[in-house]
Design a protein around this nucleic acid. Structure first.
Lengths: 188, 188
DNA sequence: GTCTATACACAGATAGAC
DNA sequence: GTCTATCTGTGTATAGAC
């Protein structure tokens, strides 16, 4: 019960907020340190480098996204609703934690060179989760066409995330959902 | 007829290639100078700042994209083809100039803070062109539903661009086109 | 208009004490 | 484990000569 508990956790939270809001590459380490109230050496003792910190943030973020999406699926009423629940999850996820500019995984991929292991791994894990779960959820709706429908929805979800970079970012998820609804057949 | 003509143009071309391949924020000015074979002071005499250079690059790039897209529309056979020609244009555009990692306009928006005038203006101009022309082209296909269909396609196009950041980037445009084809009715 | 040389700022990371 | 203080590299931009 020291007056400064869970330094690692505080660093993670500070970094996640700032990285989400501004982008990781646009966020100096000093700013994370300032918000967490921690000294530089401590950060490097825990995470080794800024990249290590970023990897830890993305890992934690992916776990949270996974949980939020799962909950949204469970809350949905029917097969079609469960498939489209990814958009409920996107909205719910924006509510948890700090506001984020756009997708942290795409941002990591965009901000780092293609061969960078951390950016590549993070976006690969995110993509894998999206593709796998969308395919599962599409099966009751589209049967043998599930993989194809899931692929189309993966494009639309990615598009909804990219739309957050365009003017009118507030409507990005709603626009994505509208496009997706036009894509998913009304009844299996 | 000096031995070093069109310094401005050479800077623009060098910057466009490097910015497209690596992202503007990840590209140091020195690298542009090296490729163009030009001294630092010359760049600042012409463009004022790195940001100014980036703005000039984006302007030139938008003009090229506009022309390529226009040509793709003219080459298409029917109304539906003209609407979907945006995907032909995306492929053709990737062929012109240097290879690019993903969309330079979205990259500018992602790499700069939201209030940054240059990133915001560039992505706004690009978005406006996409939305306006897609709506025009959707009219013969969807009539009164043109605006709505265009909005859906804007999401899909943005998604195709974002898919270039995910594993399997080579198939990004093809996947976008497949999703779009499922969205556009077969005959008006 | 273009060059050489350099100023200035800041970011990521470390040394060594406590 | 955490802190204070600092080192080092690099990036943008400019001064001043030609």
């Amino acid at each position: 019960m020291s007056p400064r508990p869970d330094v690692r956790q505080r660093l993670l939270e500070a970094a996640e907020e700032l990285f989400a809001a501004q982008g990781a590459s646009a966020t100096p380490v000093d700013q994370v340190l300032g918000r967490a109230g921690v000294a530089p050496a401590t950060l490097y003792a825990h995470f080794g480098s800024k990249t290590g910190l970023q990897a830890a943030v993305l890992e934690s973020r992916l776990a949270r996204w996974d949980a939020v999406w799962r909950a949204a699926v469970e809350a949905a009423a029917d097969d079609r609703g469960r498939l489209l629940a990814v958009f409920d999850a996107l909205e719910a996820f924006a509510g948890t934690g700090a506001p984020s500019r756009w997708c942290a995984f795409l941002e990591a991929a965009a901000g780092a060179p293609p061969e960078d292991p951390i950016g590549a791994a993070a976006v690969a894990a995110d993509t894998d989760l999206l593709r796998t779960r969308l395919t599962e959820l599409a099966r009751p709706v589209a049967g043998a066409g599930a993989a194809e429908l899931a692929e189309h929805l993966l494009v639309v979800v990615s598009g909804a995330l990219a739309m957050r970079l365009r003017p009118g970012a507030e409507h990005a998820v709603a626009r994505g959902r509208a496009a997706a609804e036009a894509l998913v057949p009304r009844h299996g």
